[in-house]
């Protein structure tokens, strides 16, 4: 009986491992295949798409880089960095104002800042296009920066507000007794104490901004301000595409975020958990 039970457990254990490993394969195989195809010749991608690469064409990466991926990366990196910075600053100020400063209409303003969470960006698409055409922001870096910043604020402020509500009240009071101004309290005390949530939201915002597609596609039309996701899709659809070069571009687009995830896994988990769990 005991051995039977153990056997049953063994079978179940094996089934569990088989499932987990099969899923591992389902996740990893396409990714490995993507890297493999980035090293093939165009003919091999078409004739033998699933074979191991018979060549190791590292120059595909250089070609992709020179065919525009370099510019896309530059745009994406600066856009992601600046938009994240702007989002973080504006959101952390707002969260501070809502939680630690006495302001009139606090409840209404909280709703005003957080209600944006409910909005799908597609809903605002048509008026935004019209507005940006009028402002001369259409097809500009600044235009995308404004959109990326604005649409990430509600979520970021939401997480920060929740975090700041938990910080002990006494610290502000002590600072106030020492004669510190609201601004000084923010910069010297609350901001440093909020580093964990800032780190978590930075990681989330970087992930979102780096991969954003809707705005990048609608608000840019070629030349100069294309981000990586849009640029890659363009590369793919253009006449006479070299597929290995597209694969190389895809690898270059995916790698930074995968590395960022493994390096900052702790903050990812916290940010993600915060995003849904609260």
């Amino acid at each position: 009986m005991v051995t039977l039970l153990r056997l049953g457990r063994g079978v179940r254990g094996a089934a569990v491992w088989a499932l987990l490993l099969a899923l591992l394969l389902v996740v990893l195989y396409p990714l490995v295949w993507m890297v493999g195809n980035a090293l093939k010749t165009n003919a091999q991608v078409f004739n033998d798409p699933f074979g191991l690469p018979t060549s190791l064409l590292w120059p595909n990466f250089a070609t992709a880089w020179n065919q525009g991926v370099g510019e896309f990366v530059l745009t994406s990196v600066s856009l992601t960095a600046l938009a994240t910075l702007a989002t973080e600053l504006i959101s952390v100020w707002a969260a501070y104002g809502l939680t630690r400063v006495n302001i009139p209409l606090n409840r209404q303003l909280t709703v005003a800042v957080l209600a944006g969470l409910m909005l799908a960006p597609t809903v605002a698409l048509v008026p935004l296009v019209k507005m940006f055409q009028g402002l001369g922001l259409y097809n500009t870096f600044l235009g995308l920066l404004c959109l990326y910043t604005a649409f990430r604020i509600p979520f970021t402020a939401f997480l920060m507000r929740a975090y700041m509500l938990d910080l002990p009240r006494e610290v502000d009071e002590a600072a106030a007794l020492d004669g510190a101004s609201t601004a000084a309290t923010f910069w010297r005390i609350i901001l440093p104490m909020s580093t964990p949530i800032i780190a978590a939201t930075v990681v989330l915002n970087v992930l979102q901004d780096w991969n954003e597609y809707l705005f990048a596609m609608v608000f840019t039309s070629g030349t100069g301000v294309e981000t990586l996701p849009v640029g890659l899709a363009d590369m793919m659809s253009k006449n006479g595409t070299q597929y290995p070069v597209v694969f190389a571009g895809m690898v270059m687009a995916a790698l930074p975020m995968v590395i960022l995830f493994f390096v900052c896994q702790r903050y990812f988990v916290r940010g993600l958990a915060g995003g849904v769990g609260k």
Binding site: W93, Y96, G97, A150
Partner: peptide, 20 residues
């Protein structure tokens, strides 16, 4: 104290709520 909220409210009003 509203100065802390002004940037967020402004950006949201212009790029999120007004288009809506």
């Amino acid at each position: 104290g509203l100065v802390w909220l002004a940037p967020a409210l402004f950006v949201l009003a212009v790029f999120v709520y007004w288009p809506l």
